[in-house]
């Protein structure tokens, strides 16, 4: 009998998962579909802002652009793109029975989850930022719009990816459940319930934009620190839950 053991470091495990999943996640179909969503937003936002350009002051234009970003960009583009990639990170592997090639390795579960999360962020962030930042540039409005968009996208993309990564480990219909979550919880419950609004990720994108642009979007505006710390806590909780789920998963 071979009496030996090997160890895969955390850093190495993160690196392996990240490299593998970036390659697996980027399919032509996903790229085309999600770029289409992003550029549809870009076209619509540009059209709306430009149509108001001749009759509005700069401050009014900024308000229109920020509201478009908060109500459409952060309701549709950011969560949908994050959902597709993050839920597929483990979901695809589980679905096609290739998760066994990762699960049965002498790697701790937490770095495997971290690597998958990084991979989802790596592929989704550029696809979100490209149309959203282009829309701010085409609006010719205050530079604070660009800064707030950058920061808000980063905060909520990290949070959405962690939550949807966990969802991909929970169910094989993660996209359907994710869309339900986006529409019902983030889109509806968060609007009518104060507590729901505090738990909804999208709310922190709105508050971040409000702090930086001074455009009033939410009542009882949380500080920038809170707008960063709460989503960061959501990331931590989602990643820990994903680790526990991966550990107890029945793998085909």
């Amino acid at each position: 009998m071979n009496t030996v053991s090997r160890h895969v470091s955390w850093f190495k495990a993160v690196q392996i998962m990240h490299r593998l999943l970036v390659r697996q996640l980027l399919t032509k179909g996903r790229l085309v579909a999600l770029l289409a969503v992003g550029f549809a937003y870009l076209a619509f936002a540009t059209l709306v802002v430009r149509s108001n350009a001749s009759t509005s002051t700069d401050q009014e234009l900024l308000r229109v652009a920020v509201e478009l970003m908060a109500n459409l960009g952060f309701t549709l583009v950011v969560p949908i793109v994050s959902l597709v990639f993050a839920s597929a990170a483990f979901g695809d592997l589980n679905e096609d029975s290739t998760l066994v090639y990762i699960w049965l390795r002498p790697m701790d579960r937490m770095p495997v989850v971290l690597g998958a999360w990084f991979a989802a962020v790596t592929v989704s962030l550029p696809l979100i930022l490209l149309p959203l930042l282009l829309s701010t540039l085409f609006s010719y409005v205050d530079g604070s719009l660009v800064t707030s968009t950058l920061l808000a996208v980063l905060i909520v993309n990290l949070a959405y990816c962690a939550v949807f990564l966990f969802l991909g480990l929970l169910t094989k219909n993660a996209v359907v459940w994710g869309i339900g979550y986006i529409l019902i919880w983030e889109g509806f419950v968060s609007q009518i319930s104060e507590l729901g609004g505090r738990i909804a990720i999208r709310g922190y994108a709105r508050s971040t934009m409000q702090v930086i642009t001074d455009v009033n979007l939410v009542n009882g505006q949380p500080s920038l620190v809170i707008s960063i710390l709460v989503p960061a806590s959501m990331v931590l909780v989602a990643l820990v839950l994903s680790t526990l789920r991966l550990r107890s998963l029945n793998v085909d």
Binding site: Y101, R105, P106
Partner: peptide
């Protein structure tokens, strides 16, 4: 090679 790498080889 991916299998080998994930075994710490």
């Amino acid at each position: 090679a991916l299998a080998g790498e994930s075994h710490g080889i």
